[in-house]
């Protein structure tokens, strides 16, 4: 498969890399579900979950720093939750006055915000480990194992196969635009046209990208027909899980369940 700067998969031989993709996939989902079900302000549970995530990161030999850096990049959405620190009613923690407004940070508000941020941060770390230690074809196998319809899996697979081709196509379009665009320091020379014009140029690029994609899909269909495609998506049967995989699966699911019980008691 074509190696591309976009592909987050990092080949390796760690125990996490060697774990079956289906087990990893199910455990990642179970972990994220457990995190979501943990109530607001259950700090000990968060620490447990974070410790779990960091253990997995160490076992995966990706480097904890690598995962944490990527996890931070995925987090700007947290600011969407920021207003809750002011709006959840409760004991005042801190009052800020900015001009005519007085903003009061409440204790339950701050608790809720930090909880949301932590949960999101812990969840995204696990998703990063999954994507970085599992190749896409293995993820497709995992999707088949959890009964995603075969047709949809096939569309996912084809999309992945041509994603980099089309991203390259888009990059070529952008390079072409860049090479035809100029900028000058002279004040009487304005660079670029009006907003509408710029949008039209970008739209034209998108349009030609879609047309090329349509034509490419025609050619791909022809080559598929030439190789005997009859509309039926076939795949080899899933290989059985090894004993070690089963053991890991049930052990981790049990642990997650125990954490969940702990969270409920908390």
């Amino acid at each position: 498969m074509h190696v591309h700067f976009l592909d987050p998969y990092r080949p390796g031989h760690s125990s996490i890399h060697q774990l079956d993709a289906r087990v990893k996939f199910i455990l990642t989902l179970a972990f994220i579900l457990t995190t979501a079900l943990t109530p607001i302000g259950a700090w000990p549970i968060y620490i447990l979950l974070l410790a779990w995530a960091i253990i997995v990161e160490i076992l995966s030999e990706l480097g904890v720093g690598f995962v944490l850096r990527r996890a931070v990049l995925a987090l700007p959405f947290v600011l969407a939750a920021l207003p809750v620190i002011f709006t959840v009613p409760g004991a005042a923690l801190l009052s800020l006055s900015i001009g005519p407004w007085a903003l009061t940070i409440t204790l339950p508000g701050a608790e809720r915000f930090i909880s949301i941020a932590l949960k999101s941060w812990i969840s995204v770390q696990m998703a990063i480990v999954l994507a970085a230690t599992t190749s896409f074809p293995d993820l497709l196998t995992a999707m088949r194992a959890i009964k995603v319809p075969r047709l949809l899996v096939a569309v996912f697979g084809l999309m992945w196969r041509y994603l980099f081709v089309l991203v390259d196509e888009a990059l070529r379009l952008m390079r072409a635009r860049l090479s035809r665009s100029g900028e000058s320091d002279r004040e009487d020379l304005k660079s670029g046209g009006a907003l509408i014009w710029r949008a039209k140029v970008a739209g034209g690029m998108a349009g030609s990208l879609f047309l090329r994609a349509l034509e490419r899909s025609d050619r791909i269909y022809m080559t598929m027909l030439a190789r005997g495609y009859d509309g039926e998506v076939r795949a080899a049967p899933l290989p059985p899980l090894s004993r070690r995989d089963w053991l890991t699966l049930w052990l981790c699911l049990g642990l997650l369940f125990a954490i969940l019980v702990g969270a409920a008691l908390f």
Binding site: L151, A154, V155, G157, L158, F210, A213, D218, I220
Partner: peptide
């Protein structure tokens, strides 16, 4: 459908 939707 498969090639069309995948590539699109």
């Amino acid at each position: 459908q498969v090639p069309l939707m995948g590539v699109l």
